[in-house]
Write a protein that binds this DNA or RNA. Structure first.
Lengths: 192, 192, 192, 192
DNA sequence: CATGAATGAGTGTTCATTCAT
DNA sequence: AATGAATGAACACTCATTCAT
């Protein structure tokens, strides 16, 4: 089958896109991304049909990575001893630290999230990446002050608090853990 | 440089820019904005040096308008009889309803806020528009659970909750007042 | 009204397009046409929406010019003393000599005629340019051996003979008049 | 260079090229031709050095096929009983019907004939394919009204009439035979 | 100051051809 | 020889900005 499409190259493009978007925004030329990835400009299009396609896939990949990191260590079964609050804190902490550890990825994710050319399908798939959290969050909400609010509203607020927390952890790295905890407390006061 | 003869024309451009950005995003051509404003494409540049300049000024104008609307009816002196919570709710309610009444302006504001070409100066000035709230917010925070967190963090979280609330008021207009109240309660639980 | 769109520039583009197409064919870059016309590449698109648009207009212009030249001196009224044959020869002679005098225009016309991006509307309009000939040709056909063939067939054959004649006039310029006459005789034997 | 292993593959490419050119014109991608032929895009270039090479060979092949079909049944020796007119009509009829039977091949031939990248050598060879007709045509011309015109001129005119006839046979299939005859009559009136 | 034509750098994408497998 | 990924030149068209009128 001749030279097979290389997973390495695909990843290199993703990595290059992330860096270039951080530096230049979403309007960065595809040619620059290609160069950064060490391939020819034409080659980019054997891996992604269009620039928008690349962006959609990049969004999904980053979102999925973030979700996986956030959900790490979360017991899926019912037999867990941990309280909801403890579980929630685990997720929150994972989330915040992933964002702190990969500020570029998080920045690009934020830009892509508001980009015009994210497909509805992509957004849909992005939400699903967080599905592992759904049950837990549902249980928490049901017993808290927002029990009557729509789930989407709760999620949106949680996201808002999370974004703010991440920003401040980045702004004051020395007090990152403090902010992480403060953000969680705030969030918990809302829904827990 | 711009030495506008007509304030009307400047306003027309601002209004046109808002509409066009809603429809096409920030990459909308200046020529389209000019046409929508009923002027020639060249004329736009006698009112704004560059496209980025227009965007910066538009951002400031919208942000200021939002701030003015939010702060309406807020007693500036210390002699007010209203409690902090009551004052805060007034601001919150004003804010939410401005956003509901002018969804286009709010949408554009949101896009501009994350745009690469907002200058630091613009962002700075944008914050100042909210200065009228500073004292009140300071007082509230000082007595609440986030008394040890930096002010910016509190503001950021409040913004996050506000954005989520606005979105849901728009999504379910019939239950807008409910969501407005729920959003406020959430916010108050965090800082109040 | 600021600098008005200049007819001179438009003509310069048409002329440049003709030359460039002769040299490079229809796949010639628009940038080259622009350069040849002494304008910037962007300017070309203020006069023509697309490359195809330019080609359509060029086709029409050349076809019209050819038609005008061919019909020159043809009496339109019924009072003409000239026989049909004489009138027909006049047209034929005009036609052949226009093609001989402007070989580039004729060559470009031939290329455009078979181009994929000639609009049906353009072809339609192109036919109309020859309308002045319709009545005469109709009369000639009605009295000749092809009286029962569709008019379009007659026209097509006439065109075929004309093309062959033009080619040979160009190939042997010294005997151009001879070939012109021979071509006419051939044509006349078919339809006259 | 091409050292084809399989004549079948070569033919498949030729066939595919014909179909694709009909659908998309000469600017059709080689990759599409390859896919249509059931081979990889790279393989195409082991059979043909360049796209232009493929087109030249395709032209020759089609032209030769058309010539073979046209000359079928034509007695080569001098002993034939048939008159020149009868022989000529046989050729004409063969020609017209080949074009009617293989409209795609004929359409592609027409496109290639005016293509920029037909080499002089190819055109030369194309003419030779018709050599079998030369003697007959020569004899006809010598006794007809075009006896003084160059042979090439006669051929060109005959081609022109033929093209027109083919077009009309295709346009009105019901009256194809009529047009075939009418076309021949016209042609014969010119040279016979 | 208003107009809108002029400018030309910039960009996503295509595609003939090459070459590693 | 066959495959199909890699290459990179090419190109139509856009658009912020300038400038002649």
């Amino acid at each position: 089958m001749a030279r097979p499409k290389s997973e390495d190259r695909r990843n290199a493009i993703m990595r290059a896109a992330t860096q270039v978007i951080v530096a230049q925004g979403l309007s960065a030329p595809t040619a620059l991304i290609a160069r950064e990835a060490g391939i020819s400009n034409g080659s980019l299009f054997t891996y992604f049909d269009t620039k928008a396609d690349l962006f959609n896939q990049l969004y999904l990949e980053l979102k999925t990575e973030m979700a996986m990191a956030s959900l790490a260590g979360l017991a899926v079964g019912a037999g867990s001893e941990a309280t909801s609050r403890e579980q929630m804190f685990l997720v929150w902490s994972n989330w915040m630290h992933w964002a702190s550890d990969y500020p570029q990825k998080r920045a690009v994710l934020a830009q892509l999230a508001v980009s015009e050319d994210m497909t509805p399908a992509t957004r849909q798939a992005g939400h699903q990446a967080m599905d592992g959290l759904a049950g837990l969050l549902e249980r928490v909400r049901a017993g808290g002050p927002m029990r009557d609010a729509p789930m989407g509203f709760v999620v949106a607020i949680m996201n808002g608090v999370a974004e703010a927390t991440i920003d401040f952890m980045a702004q004051e790295p020395d007090r990152a853990e403090l902010h992480c905890q403060a953000g969680f407390d705030a969030m918990w006061r809302i829904i827990g």
